[in-house]
Design a protein around this nucleic acid. Structure first.
Lengths: 219, 219
DNA sequence: CCGATTGCTGAACGTCCGTTCAAAATGGAT
DNA sequence: ATCCATTTTGAACGGACGTTCAGCAATCGG
């Protein structure tokens, strides 16, 4: 996909330029949605934000709808890549992995005002358009599935009396709710506080695997 | 403000009629936002939904902005009234009260596709307009404050080793996240399942006060 | 250095939406 | 029955937005 290869770098440059432009426009879209809201974001805003002319978006994307769909797809992919990488590089053991997953949700790269604002604006608005719903549905299912698996492992390992599905659904909801709190009331809720709250719950639910400072070395 | 007073009931009737119209239009607004989304909701949609003419909204509300602000205010008030009533009629004891609070969040009157869809659409879009933010800010603070108090009482009563602020913030986030799950993926999450998940967490966090079926009679 | 292909521009067009307002309808008071 | 205040209507207006496209600029093969 990168194109920094092959014998000639001419087509590479063209392709790169095209992808770079699309990236610029998607970034400008996110910025505009975060600043102005979804409803108030116009094609002119996006073009101006990217420092380009008015007709540029219809050239690189076909329409406003396609631009928004691609923006949502981009953000979903970035989110999924973040937690998958965290899971991949985590130390072995379900507690370490769950902790890595939770922590990744509060990474600055995905958990910041701009990203969260655009994220919810797109998802909530996408709610009324079936085509958009599918874009973020599958990644969501994968994330929840990962949590369910880890909860099941923890319950089996620690002999806890709890239902993995219920715990996973609750944790998933708490994480998304924390993003909302950070978005809506940044004075009260922050990445640090959010992580501390979730950590408190993990400590209560899986006391043999977690303390308030993180996962215990019970391997 | 009600006008059901004074010697003559003329102004009362007029005022009532006026309030009824405003109510109709607010209901039509909620319906339209839930069905079409915030961005696609037009004044004509609202008027048609209420079975009235096009210029009617600007007569009863001054502008579209004011209509949306009033709709948000209406929904916030309805939500707050619901949990306050649940708290008022709850049996004594922090466990009973917290359970009543949590259960009220899954009442059909506030927790249904239509209401949740409009709720998040309005709140997320209101995010970019400071005027709208204040409308839902204060009720939110009150709700969180009530949870904090109850968590503090439970911790003191049960001798749990946990921080009330962290637990309250986490529970608040989980409840809001459950609404989002019900909205985004109704096939997977429902009012019943959501309540069961939260109940599972309460059982883990406050084992001396809750079981999976609800609060224990430990008074 | 010179065509040709690709990338980009910005003005023009048609549509849609929020608002306004003069006129009609409604309904209670005299 | 008549009058007046209030409520409602629907057409018209002005502005904003998404899209289109003919033309310009830049880059690359020859």
């Amino acid at each position: 996909m990168t194109g920094i290869d092959q014998k000639t770098d001419k087509p590479a440059r063209r392709k790169a330029s095209k992808e770079v432009r699309r990236g610029q426009l998607i970034e400008a879209t996110i910025t505009s949605i975060a600043a102005r809201g979804f409803a108030a974001t116009t094609m002119a805003d996006v073009a101006d934000g990217a420092g380009l002319s008015r007709g540029i978006v219809n050239f690189h994307f076909e329409s406003k709808e396609k631009l928004l769909a691609e923006t949502l797809r981009f953000m979903s992919a970035a989110y999924e890549a973040n937690w998958r990488e965290a899971l991949r590089t985590a130390a072995p053991g379900p507690a370490q992995k769950l902790w890595a997953l939770v922590k990744s949700d509060f990474d600055r790269s995905v958990c910041n005002q701009r990203t969260i604002a655009a994220w919810f604006a797109l998802r909530v608005e996408a709610q009324s358009r079936p085509t958009y719903r599918r874009i973020s549905r599958r990644p969501d299912d994968a994330f929840l599935g990962a949590i369910v698996d880890l909860c099941r492992d923890l319950i089996a390992d620690g002999g806890y009396d709890a239902d993995a599905g219920k715990l996973a659904a609750g944790l998933d909801a708490m994480l998304e709710g924390m993003w909302l709190s950070i978005l809506m009331d940044p004075d009260r809720m922050s990445r640090r506080r959010g992580l501390a709250s979730v950590s408190q719950y993990l400590t209560c639910v899986f006391p043999r695997h977690f303390s308030n400072e993180g996962p215990l070395d019970t391997n």
